[in-house]
Each structure stands twice: as C-alpha cells, then as structure tokens.
Amino acid sequence: MLRFLLRRLAVALLVALTVLTLSFLLTRLSGDLAISIAGPNATQEDVDIIRRAYGLNRPLTQQYLDWLVRAVQGDFGDSFFFKDRVAKLIASRLPITMTLGLVGLAIALVVSLPLGIIAAVRENSWVDRSVMMVALIGQAMPSFWLGLILMVVLGLNLGWLPISGTGGWEYYVMPGIVLAFSAIPSLMRLTRSGMIEALSSDYIRTARAKGLSRLSILVKHGFRNAAIPVVSIAAVQLGFMLGGSIVIESVFAMHGVGYLAWESIGKNDFPVVQAVVLVLALLYIALTLLADMLNAVLDPRLRSA
C-alpha cells in the first residue's frame, strides 16, 4: 500500500515537472514572443525594448531555469496587461472556477447516479434504453451551444436565471448544468455497468437468499461496490471540467481562470496563459492522485497490494 502510494506520488511529481516544461515551451516554440507582444504596428526598436524588458534576449535554457525556479515557488511573474502579479490574478479568479466545477460535478452526480442505477436494475428494458439515449445525447451536445440555448430559454423567455455574468449562486446554475452535461454520459455509463456487474455477483445472491429488502441490497451491497470506480472517475471528471471551463466561462462571461486565460490569449499576455495552463494541469494531477488514493482506501482488495 505504502509502496503503491509512493510510486504514484513520484509519477505525479514527474508529470508535474513535464507539464511545467511543456507550458514554458508552449509559449516559446510558437513563434517570436517579442514580436507577438509588440503587435503588428511595432517597429524593430519596440521589439528590442520588449525583448530586453522581459528577458527574452537571454538564452532559452536560462529563461527556462529561471521560470522553473520561480514557478516552483509559486511566482509566475507579472501580467503584461493587468499590471499585476500573475499568481495574485489567478488566486482571485480560481474560487469562481472551482465553485463552477463543483456545482457542475454535483449536478452531474445527482443526475447520473440514480439514472445509472435504475438503468442497471431494469437492464435491457425501455428504461435502460432511454437512459443510454440520454447518455448519447449528452455526448453529442456542443457545450457552448447548449449554454446559448439555456440563455435564451431560461434567461430570456422564462426569466428564471440571470443570462450571464459573475455574482451569487443563481449565476452558477446555468453554467453548472452545461458543465455537468460533459460528465453525465461517462458517469452514468460507469454507474450502470458497475451496478450490472455488482448485481450479478455471488454476494448479491447471498444477500437475496438471506431475505434482505430490495432497497438494502441495492444500496448496501450493490451500489457500495459499484461506487468505487465512480468515485475515482468523478475526481478525474472534475479535473476535465476545470480544464474545459474556459469555453463555458467565456460563453457566460464568468470571470474565472478560464475567462482570464481567454482574455489573455487575445492580448498575447503569455505569462498569464502559461500560468493558467500550469495551474489547471496541476489541479488535474492532484485530482487523479486523490482519485487513486480514494480507490485504495475504498477498495479493500487494493489495500494489501
């Protein structure tokens, strides 16, 4: 168990280092940064000034090591556009993205767990088929388009929710629903297949033979076993949702880190862009690590391994 965790932690650290390197390369390999920052109307002189000011005239390895040492300490430099520390900017925007991600995950779980269980209990019935149809529809739905439709229907026509912006809980409902749609198909399929497997197992037959109630069998014996992979996939899905929130934040004008990144991409504000890429990647790495640990804790069969 301890060896497994240590090995897993080492891999996570190595992946984090790789992502650090990639997020640096991302901005350097895609062209001359000084020219990108200076804009189309800049003279050679402007470009030289920018190159010196941001240390872009130094050797690439030196720039890389400098970025690495600072980034490890949580220092991502200054934003060109916002005239502020990048770390501070991200810290102020991150709670919005995290809240959005958690709301999305909560909605996804509330929808997919019951539907997945019902589909498994009534396997191959019309209920099962309708649930699988819902999964297919969710998979095919373009998230930004669903967002716009909700804005027109719930925001304008029915007037139930604010159309866009950042604010109280009501601003998180529509983006949360849209974000949930991306996680519902896989969570639902996994719950369903896990439950089908659990319900056909010997311990369920034993429980039935003991004369336990149907509900008790479903929840205590069936779902507890089916939930193990669902918990870890939910953590991973949260990571994907945080990474994908850039689209939804831009649609709903929510000022989270995704929106920050989108604004910064448009303004060639590369310190912000590479920092957001890094932060979202690190969050994903942390969440998958958490998922593996949860798995080990929840599943006694893994504990002795």
């Binding site: 992946v15 992502v19 990639l22 991302l26 901005t27 895609s30 062209g31 940064l33 990108s36 990571g239 945080l242 990474g243 994908g244 850039i246 689209v247 995704g258 990144a261 989108w262 991409i265 448009g266 060639n268 590369f270 862009v273 590479q274 957001v276 890429v277 979202l280 990647a281 994903y284 790495i285 998958t288």
Partner: peptide, 16 residues
Amino acid sequence: LSIPVVLVALAVAGLM
C-alpha cells in the same frame, strides 16, 4: 491527459 486540451489549443492558435 493532464494537459487541458481546449486551453492549450486556444493558446497555440492565439500565438500562431
């Protein structure tokens, strides 16, 4: 898998 696809795709397209 740890790299956020949409964000990186947007960043590369924005720069190039």
